[in-house]
Design a protein around this nucleic acid. Structure first.
Lengths: 329, 329
DNA sequence: GTGAAAGCGCTAACAA
DNA sequence: TTGTTAGCGCTTTCAC
């Protein structure tokens, strides 16, 4: 009872396995009478095709791999949510893998993907690791590979990214528009390419503007962003705006502003690049430039489908940003 | 080159497939010389066992299903993280499924689990759905099923839950200890069993205490919690403490308190049941009773392993809570 | 319109 | 110590 197979159905009905198989697939060759018999019995016997057997026979799996540094991260979550929704729509399942930026874990995960013969892999290229080689194995196995968010410099890979430069300059524009003069801009770790792009674009927007005093800082964590903010807002000459490169930084900044009871936007403005959920938990809500993990997921998935249907020239694509007005500027 | 099989290795070496298979498994019967030859060739040919074939043959998959209402939720994230870590340790992969509390999606997901012949399933029992029957199909197929967090009332299932009653009463104790007299307690939707348990235990702690005035409210969303808080703190007789049943409620409460510039803990105390990440983004940090998704995951996984090794009597277990002092009381 | 047969890549009992 | 064989559940070509 526990496991119905085509064979069992065929035996009960006294017909051949292949007829059962075809009937269940609604093959035109099979008579309606047979189809009816078969589908009904399959129903009562609770037949479920054995994906393992199908995969082995067809040499395809309906399985995607998705590797992120950590699932406990709002940005990656919304990416995962997008991929999960789309995958389910086309009958695919999703293998979730975390590497915690650890090369050993990454290798394990990649191995799991290879052994499970995933049909495609979405992955972040964690910067610590230099084992692009392990990824290349997938490529030679002709498994489509989509890097997202954190991607290698190397051409020759599909890369789906946030429009970091655009996002940073949109934020800069808002700051300029509101005549902020003394801006504390906090970015992430200097060695991340994402930081470089955002930083470059942001500072570039102020380059021929001599009225604005720009303080650039790099925070490696929420806590660090909190400390930096605390220091600057204890000084005489306080910033009149804070730019946060990410949600993690925004949370640190806000904590210090709460602590020092700096009122927003009266005493200082705040703007962030953000996935969108954190800005709305504060009052006033934080104005932000949207860098949406969800949209990134949708775009990455679209690219995956193209790869599955033959596209092979790697592309680099960007998810557009938009400014969302809160009340913090 | 792209896909090395045992057959290919055996042909190159002029030995049989089964010898290759055994050599690769370090079977004692095989001579060291042969083992060496085989492993070396496997290495250079980048052999990866085909999990699909192994699964078919052994009738086992190294695959767990994990179904949550939504992955964009801090609590479930940390649960997922725990399960992922443990699964990888024992060479299992994780199929992630979301149902968004939608019965149709849930059915799809369950079907994917059945078709993929997962070795076990971790699932929330979303309250909207009454299709326990679909889950029962798994049980009859002898697939271990662990309900977590949201679980059916029905006995006969493995249930791993937060110690809701304990957590709520721990929070109540802290409130009593600090002599709070006018407490606004905000719980989630009344129809959730989790709400019932927390509510019952919380109010029970105050039952023979006539000095405390307890205001019980139910919020169905963060936004709703925000509104409720806003109302009560505009009144003359403001609460001297707010109890939040969850992180979602806490965020709503804090937004209104920020808006009304109520200082914490001077004007009102705040305490929450929480997974732990949200309380630390505020200043002062919010005191909370930990209801950890991560620990829940670890415990659920432990139970899964027991099931895999023969345990079949369903159990109900609870993750203990502890009070974490912030500065908000 | 249906059936027989081969085979996907692997494991494991049995033989030698 | 190694090889032979059967078969997991399915799809698909070819034959009738």
């Amino acid at each position: 009872m526990s496991d119905t197979t085509l064979k069992k159905i065929s035996q009960v009905l006294g017909i051949s396995i292949s007829t059962v198989s075809r009937a269940l697939k609604n093959h035109p060759d099979i008579s309606d009478a047979t189809k009816k018999k078969v589908t009904e019995l399959a129903e009562t016997l609770e037949y479920e095709p054995n994906a393992t057997a199908v995969n082995l026979r067809t040499k395809k799996t309906k399985l995607f791999g998705l590797m992120v540094p950590s699932v406990t991260n709002m940005f990656y979550d919304s990416f995962i949510a997008a991929i999960e929704e789309e995958s389910r729509k086309i009958g695919y399942s999703l293998l979730i893998l975390q590497n915690n930026e650890d090369t050993a874990a990454e290798s394990d995960n990649l191995k799991l993907c290879r052994q499970n013969r995933v049909s495609g892999l979405f992955a972040c290229y964690s910067h610590e690791t230099d084992n692009l080689a392990a990824f290349t194995k997938l490529k030679t196995a002709e498994i489509p590979l989509i890097f997202f968010d954190k991607v290698p410099d190397d051409a020759g890979y599909n890369k789906i990214c946030l429009a970091d430069k655009e996002a940073a300059s949109l934020a800069a524009d808002e700051l300029l528009k509101r005549n902020k003069q003394n801006i504390l801009a906090i970015f992430g770790s200097r060695n991340l390419s994402i930081t470089k792009r955002r930083l470059e674009s942001f500072t570039g927007s102020f380059s021929n503007n001599k009225k604005v005093s720009l303080i650039i800082e790099n925070a490696h964590s929420t806590k660090h962003a909190e400390e930096i903010t605390y220091q600057y807002f204890q000084k005489q000459n306080k910033p009149d705006a804070v730019f946060c490169m990410s949600d993690e930084i925004l949370m640190g900044v806000m904590k210090s502003l709460m602590r020092l009871q700096i009122s927003i936007p009266a005493q200082t403005g705040v703007i962030s690049l953000s996935d969108g959920s954190i800005p709305s938990i504060y009052y006033p809500e934080i104005s932000f430039v949207e860098t949406s993990g969800y949209n990134l997921g949708k775009l990455a998935f679209k690219r995956m489908q193209e790869c599955l249907t033959g596209a092979d020239e790697p592309v680099e694509e960007f998810v557009p940003s938009r400014f969302v007005e809160g009340g913090s500027l």
